[in-house]
Design a protein around this nucleic acid. Structure first.
Lengths: 197, 197, 197, 197
DNA sequence: CATGAATGAGCTTTCATTCAT
DNA sequence: TATGAATGAAAGCTCATTCAT
C-alpha cells in the first residue's frame, strides 16, 4: 500500500490543509473525536472529501497533527515560563510550570478531553504521550537542579511532581468548587515542603 | 415506549446475566470498549443477542455495571485498608491508601484504561466519576483529621492528595522504569512533609 | 405443523382469553397494530406470553378476532336499526343505516383505522372484508326492496349506496368542519333522489 | 446533527435516485410497503445501500415521494379531464372525473392499496392526504358551480360527491362482478338526480 | 395449564474510504 | 489537483415465537 499523502507545496494546498486542521479541531472540541466524521470536517472546512484524503491518511492523522500542535505549544509555553524567571525564586518557578499547564488546559478546553481519552485507548497516541511525558519529566528534573534540590533520587522526585502538577492542573481548570489561586499556592507549598526537606 | 430491561428472577437468568458481564469485562479489557461489539460479547458468553438486550439497554449499560463493580471494590478496599491500621501511624495510613489504589489498577489492568478514557468522553460516566471522586476526597479528609492535620484549608489539601495519589498510582503500575517501592515511599514522604509542616 | 391452539374450557381459561383480547384491543387502538408487540399485550393483560400463544396462533389471530367482534356488532346494530323502523318510512330506514354505521365508527374509533389499513394490506383480512361487504350489500338490497325501489339493476344500486354510506360515515365521524346532522340529511336526500327517480 | 440527504447534481446521481424510486415503486406494488426492506430496494435498483441513504432519509421518504408523484398525476389527470369537456354537458363532466379517478387506480394498482393503508396508519401521510382531499373537494365545488348546482350547502354536496366517487372508483376497479360501464352510468345518475333536484 | 427466559433472523443505519470525472 | 457520488462492511437493536420448567 504505502499510499503517500501528497506534500502540499503550493499556497492553496497549504491553505486547504490548514483549513481542514482548524475545522477538525473545532469539531473535535465541540462534539468529540468519535462523534465527528470526516464528511462533517470537510463540510465545515468547505473542502471536498477527496482533498481531505489527499492530505491526511485518515481521521486519526488529523487528530495526531492537532496533538502535535498542542504539544509544541505546551512545551514552548513551559520553556518561556521557566526562562522568564529571573530571580531564581523557587515559588516562581513552580508557579510558572503550573500556570503554563493550566493555560494549555484552558486553551484546549474540550479538545484536551479527547486527547486524554485517546492516550488511554489508542496505542500510537499512548506512545506519543509517553515520549512527551518523559520530556516534561526531564524538564522538571532540570528545574529541580536549578532549585538545588539534593535528594538521592531525582527521577522519582521529578516523576512525583509531574503526577501532581499534571492531574492538579487539569482538575482545577475543570471544576469550580475550590478557590483556584489558593489551590495553586497550596500545590506549590506541597512541592516546596517536599523539596526543601 | 416503556421497554424495561428484564430483571433476572430464575437461576438460569441470573447466571446468564453474570456470564454476559464477565464476557464483556474480558473483551473490554482485551480489545477495548470501542473495539468490542454486542455480538462478540454474546458469542464469548455463549448466549444469544436477544438475551443480551433483555438484560442490558445497550453496550454502555454493561460497561457502567462493570464500573459499579470496580467502584464498589475500590471503596471497599480503601475502607478495609484504613480500618486495618491499628497503631495510628500516618505512614501506614498513607501507604494503605496508595497500595489499595495500586491494587485496583493492577486487578483491572486494561479495563481501567477504558474506564478512564470514558470519563473524559462520556457525560454519564463523567458524572458518575465526579460523584465517586468526591466520595474519595471526603474519605481523605477524614483521614487527614485522624492524622491531626491542622491546615486552614482541608478541602484543598484533600484535593491535592487525591490528585497526587490518583495519578501516581496509575502511572507507577503502568510503567516499569522506576523502583516501585522506593517511589511509594517518596510519595508518602511528599505528603507527610506537606501535612506535617 | 398444524399446532392447534388450545380450546379454553375452564373458567380461568375463558377469562384469560378475554383479558388478552381486551388488552390487545386497547393497545391496537392506542398505538396501532404494528406498533404493538405481543409482549406488550400480555403485560397489559397481566398474563404470560406462553399463555398468549396457547390461545392465539399469532398476533394477527387476536386482531382478526377483534374484527369478528366488530363485524358481529355492526351487523347486529344494522339489523336492530332496520327492525326498529315500524312506519315504513324510507328516510327513517336510510337514517338508521347511516347512524348505525357512524355509531360503530365512533365506538371503534382508532381501532377502525387499523382495521381498514389491514383490509388493503393483508390478504386474509381483505377476504374476510369482501365477504362481509357482500353481506351488507345484500342487506341493502333487501332494504331497497322494502322501499319498493324498482330499478333495472338493484345490484348496482345497492353497491352505490354501500360505497356512499361506507365512506361518508367514516369521513363524517373523523372530521369536524361540516355540520354532521345536516350532512346526514343531505346524504339521505341524495340516496332518495336517486331511488325515487 | 444536520445530516442532510444529498441532492443529486451530477447526471449519474440523478439517474440513481430515479432508479431507486422506480425499484421502490415496483417492490411496494408487488410485495407491499412493509414486506419490502431497504436492502431489497437497492438490490432491485442495482445500487448500494449507502447511496440509498444518501438520497432518502428512510424508506418512508421514498414512499412519500411516490405518493407525491401519484398525487401530482391524479390532479393533472383531473384537470385535463375537466378542461377537455367543451360542451358543458353535466354527464360528461361527471364521467370525466370518475374515469380519471378509475384510471389512476388502474395505473397504480397494488401500490394504491399500500397508500390507502398508510393514510389510516401513518400520521404524516394522513395529513398529506387530508390536504389533497380538501383540494379535490374544492375542485368538485368548482364543477358544481359550472353545473349551476344551486343548493344551500355546496360544501356538503361536494363532500358527498367526493365520498361516493372516491370509494366507488376504487371498488369498481378492484372487483369484477358488476358491469363496469353500467355502474359508472348509474353512479352518474345518482349524482345528477341529486344535483338536479 | 401457566410461565417467562431464550432465541436469532432480520432490519435499519452509519461512515471511512475509494475512484471516476 | 479537486471533486463528491458511490461503496458495503459493520454495528445496533427488535420481536414473534418456542420450550424447558
Amino acid at each position: 500500500m504505502d499510499k503517500k499523502t501528497r506534500l502540499p507545496k503550493q499556497r492553496r494546498a497549504i491553505e486547504n490543509k490548514a483549513l481542514l486542521l482548524e475545522a477538525a479541531k473545532k469539531l473535535f472540541t465541540e462534539k468529540g473525536y468519535l462523534n465527528t466524521n470526516s464528511n462533517e470536517i470537510v463540510k465545515e472546512a468547505g473542502i471536498s472529501i477527496g482533498t481531505f484524503y489527499a492530505y491526511y491518511k485518515d481521521k486519526k492523522e488529523v487528530f495526531m497533527e492537532i496533538i502535535d500542535e498542542y504539544t509544541r505549544e505546551y512545551n514552548m509555553k513551559l520553556e518561556e515560563a521557566l526562562n522568564s524567571i529571573r530571580n531564581d525564586n523557587d515559588r516562581d518557578y513552580l508557579k510558572a510550570i503550573i500556570l503554563a499547564t493550566m493555560d494549555i488546559s484552558k486553551k484546549y478546553y474540550g479538545f484536551e478531553d479527547e486527547l486524554i481519552a485517546m492516550r488511554y485507548t489508542d496505542n500510537d497516541i499512548k506512545l506519543q504521550n509517553e515520549i512527551n511525558q518523559k520530556y516534561i519529566i526531564s524538564k522538571i528534573k532540570g528545574m529541580l537542579n536549578r532549585m538545588h534540590f539534593k535528594n538521592q533520587n531525582q527521577d522519582i522526585a521529578a516523576f512525583l511532581l509531574f503526577c501532581l502538577v499534571d492531574n492538579f492542573s487539569y482538575n482545577i481548570v475543570h471544576q469550580s468548587d475550590l478557590d483556584v489561586d489558593a489551590s495553586v499556592e497550596h500545590c506549590i507549598d506541597m512541592i516546596l515542603s517536599y523539596t526543601k526537606t
